[in-house]
């Protein structure tokens, strides 16, 4: 199903414009369990099938090469068809690096979930190394009865390093209507990004989004998370539609992960049937 040769065939030579790669995953219901009729890795994305959990199919993205580098054009498309349950994670953090020139990289994630499908996108964090420039998007299309858990974390700079530049956009449509549309831009050149309104010295930012039709009847209550300011801060808040979003900032990736794990545990405790929300590691 790949439009370009798989990594094993032609070493996906980095041209002057970088790597172009699209990985595809499709999950469908076969009998009582979810099967994966499409599991096509490409370029830096090697896809491994993990032992399934109940009726849920699990996929791990393994980095086959260093990516994204400036100039790369990367894309992952994952679909959970009607009734399927698909859980996607990654083996390691994604490291964005500067390419041969100042050209930016793109990394687009397209997630689709059909009626009564469930899709979990829980990769390891993105680390934006000094000098890197990445534009990342998540475009999510959900059927009205679909459920989604999505986590994204950005860490600005490796330890002791100045941050790279990253611009993101997360767009979630449910039944064709936009439920959430959110851009963020951090790092050199983004106006005010490190000031008191945006990150104020924090070097890690992340979100956890849960969409579940059950919230139509019983929306989650607002919750303030995080203890002392040096541990980072987070808030769980219901969206205008049946979804809840955790927004978190922390001094570093470790403390960010702790905040998001706490939030995820809160979901598991408070949302009926949310026991399926598991750690992504």
């Amino acid at each position: 199903m790949t439009l370009v040769p798989p990594p094993a065939a032609a070493a996906p030579g980095r041209t002057a414009v970088g790597v172009r790669a699209t990985a595809r995953i499709t999950a469908t219901v076969g009998g009582t369990a979810t099967t994966l009729p499409v599991l096509d890795g490409d370029g830096p994305f090697e896809l491994r099938r993990l032992r399934s959990h109940g009726s849920e199919a699990r996929v791990c993205i393994v980095g086959a090469m260093s990516a994204p580098l400036g100039g790369d054009r990367l894309r992952i498309e994952a679909t959970a068809q009607q009734g399927a349950a698909l859980h996607i994670t990654s083996a390691a953090a994604t490291l964005a690096l500067r390419g041969p020139d100042s050209e930016h990289a793109t990394y687009d994630v397209h997630l689709t979930a059909g009626e009564h499908a469930q899709l979990h996108w829980l990769p390891k964090p993105l680390i934006c190394a000094g000098g890197s420039d990445l534009r990342q998007t998540w475009t999510v299309d959900l059927a009205p009865t679909a459920r989604l858990v999505l986590r994204e974390e950005q860490i600005l700079g490796r330890t002791g390093e100045s941050p790279g530049h990253v611009a993101t956009r997360l767009t979630v449509r449910r039944g064709g209507r936009t439920l959430l549309d959110q851009q963020a831009e951090y790092g050199p050149g983004a106006p005010g990004w490190d000031g008191p309104a945006v990150l104020a010295g924090h070097r890690a930012a992340g979100q956890l989004l849960i969409v579940d039709p059950v919230f139509e009847e019983t929306p989650l209550e607002v919750q303030l998370l995080g203890g002392s300011p040096e541990d980072g801060q987070a808030v769980l808040t219901p969206l205008a539609g049946p979804a809840a979003l955790v927004t978190a900032v922390a001094p570093d990736g470790l403390r960010l992960r702790h905040l998001l794990d706490t939030a995820q545990a809160t979901f598991r405790r408070t949302v009926p049937g949310a026991s399926a929300i598991r750690e992504g590691r």
């Binding site: 919230f215 139509e216 929306p219 219901p238 205008a240 539609g241 049946p242």
Partner: peptide, 8 residues
């Protein structure tokens, strides 16, 4: 449906 304005 809009969860913010339940009452009208």
């Amino acid at each position: 449906m809009h969860l913010d304005h339940a009452e009208t």
